[in-house]
């Protein structure tokens, strides 16, 4: 099963100012995989995620070296706008814009130039269906999105990301503020999206990683300690530090 990885990082080093946050990260992520990334706080998981769509550059002190390839193409050759359209991200806390449900989802397509009302409506409906939210909101698309529950808001964020037509979806601890039922719904949505998208899930919750991901990577203090099939990583960790972490001896 040799296929071109969708995302590949080569010798990736990330800095905030003089502080090195990630050291020599080499990763390959094939298409349609759900990769889990686990590790204690401040291990660089989020920085890694945000390096992929260059969101880190919103911090003025940020710099990085090494390569990130999307479909074999260095992402520096792609404009930020296009890159972020292809690599969407779901933030830790559900972050909705203070506009209607419809306008939240339609925002992305609009900024990418979709003006036709029918196309927009279809895109929104499609995205909401894929995020498993359509049935709950189809009769109140004009309501402010902030009235939705936390779990619904997070699925709205997924729909919003889907609506711009990404290839890769990044999740930055997407369920950290959610109750178990809402979490399950988000995880369901992720499983359904597997057919069409490559997904990367950063999580503090090792159980979630083991439930959702196919392969899993363990980050510690800016280093990629270990990566492998999720089941193997949790059952026979190769590295003692991984073992310590998943058995809860630190972190």
């Amino acid at each position: 099963m040799v296929s071109e990885p969708v995302i590949k990082t080569v010798h990736l080093d990330c800095f905030f100012g003089a502080h090195q946050v990630l050291r020599n990260i080499n990763l390959e992520i094939p298409a349609n995989e759900i990769l889990g990334i686990i590790g204690p706080a401040n291990s660089g998981k989020t920085t890694f995620l945000r390096a992929l769509n260059r969101l880190n550059y919103l911090h003025r002190t940020y710099s990085q070296s090494g390569e990130i390839l999307l479909d074999g193409r260095d992402i520096r050759q792609i404009s930020d706008n296009l890159l972020r359209k292809k690599i969407g991200i779901i933030f830790a806390l559900p972050q909705v814009l203070p506009v209607s449900i419809l306008d939240n989802v339609a925002y992305g397509p609009k900024v990418h130039g979709v003006t036709n009302k029918e196309t927009l409506a279809r895109t929104v409906e499609e995205a909401l269906k894929r995020a498993y939210l359509w049935e709950e909101v189809k009769d109140r698309l004009q309501e402010p999105a902030v009235r939705l529950s936390g779990g619904q808001q997070q699925r709205l964020c997924i729909a919003r990301t889907l609506a711009v037509g990404p290839q890769v979806i990044l999740y930055d601890e997407p369920c950290s503020g959610l109750d178990p039922i809402s979490t399950a719904k988000v995880e369901d949505a992720m499983q359904q999206l597997k057919a069409d998208y490559t997904q990367i899930l950063v999580t503090n919750n090792t159980k979630q990683a083991s439930r959702v991901s196919e392969r899993c990577a363990f980050f510690l203090m800016g280093e990629l300690v270990e990566i492998g099939p999720t089941h193997d990583l949790f059952t026979y960790p190769q590295d003692k530090r991984t073992d310590d972490y998943i058995t809860g001896r630190f972190g």
Binding site: L55, D80, R84, K85, Y107, G108, V111, H112
Partner: peptide
């Protein structure tokens, strides 16, 4: 700040972000 982040993460340009996600508020 999150509004700006949302907008940029969806691939909007800086000016689009200002125009649609900052100025109105």
């Amino acid at each position: 700040l999150t509004y700006r982040e949302i907008s940029l993460s969806l691939g909007a340009t800086k000016w689009q972000t200002i125009r649609y996600c900052v100025l109105p508020y």
